[in-house]
């Protein structure tokens, strides 16, 4: 009975969605409402108005920067949720499956990881800083940083990783993205413009342009590093769940 009702509801919603997709404006048609209202303005004036030749970055950081601030807060909120429910990692008391495993990561794996991680992080920094001109930016770079640290943890184990990036330095970095965004926002208010305005009134064109570049850079770097550290912290918190008693070393 319950299953039948559920299937019926799902089928109803499915039929409705398929019908809606059929009725939608034809895909890729240049006369569609979504391509004739605000999008042309973004494409034509995005670079000069918003100060980023990558229009996607111009929209995320400038036209709809307030939304992106919210998105950054969502990521921060996800981390707080994980930490509030699972707690932080507890090193020393327990060890993970990886740490007690008889089969350690081999020398080949460890050496490769040791060589790869700096290169990956370097690439991530490039992605973050070049986001204004090419596809990429803080979110993507942050994911790459997070992935590189996760790779390192898989090869070297949690105690080694948490020794390299201790909790004390992670906590401020995790909030850094939200704080950077808000700081940029409040700077706008201080200069007498609206919240999250990048071009300050009353300054020479050159100075205003420099301030805008610096602010965008700070926000991108904030999102990138905070994102990477948040991924890392979530992973650390989850590893702990795989709890193994500390056994006397028999080897």
């Amino acid at each position: 009975m319950r299953k039948a009702i559920m299937l019926l509801a799902l089928a109803g919603i499915g039929v409705m969605l398929i019908y809606a997709v059929g009725e939608m404006p034809p895909m890729g048609d240049s006369g569609n409402p979504d391509k004739t209202h605000v999008a042309p303005r973004y494409l034509e004036h995005g670079e000069e108005e918003a100060g980023a030749s990558n229009v996607v970055t111009a929209v995320i950081l400038n036209y709809r920067g307030y939304d992106t601030m919210g998105e950054v807060a969502v990521i921060f909120c996800a981390l707080c949720a994980v930490v509030a429910v699972l707690g932080r990692e507890k090193t020393g008391l327990s060890r993970t499956h990886m740490d007690v495993s008889r089969v350690k990561a081999s020398v080949v794996v460890r050496t490769t990881v040791r060589f790869l991680v700096p290169v990956i992080i370097f690439f991530a920094i490039y992605i973050i800083l070049h986001g204004e001109e090419t596809p990429g930016g803080g979110f993507q770079g942050g994911a790459i940083i997070g992935a590189s640290i996760i790779l390192f943890t898989l090869a070297f184990g949690l105690p080694e990783s948490t020794r390299k990036i201790p909790l004390k330095s992670r906590v401020p970095l995790e909030s850094f993205a939200v704080i950077a965004f808000l700081a940029a926002g409040f700077t706008g208010i201080l200069f007498g413009a609206n919240f999250l305005t990048y071009i300050m009134p009353g300054l020479s064109e050159h100075a205003a342009e420099t301030i805008r570049q610096v602010m965008m850079m700070v926000i991108e770097i904030g999102i990138g590093f905070a994102g990477g550290i948040i991924f890392t912290s979530i992973m650390f918190a989850m590893i702990r769940e795989d709890k193994y008693e500390l056994q006397p070393d028999s080897s």
Partner: peptide, 17 residues
Amino acid sequence: SILLVAVPLAFAALCPI
């Protein structure tokens, strides 16, 4: 109208620190 959102958000971000 923006501060009523931004200020508590800032306090939330600083709270773990």
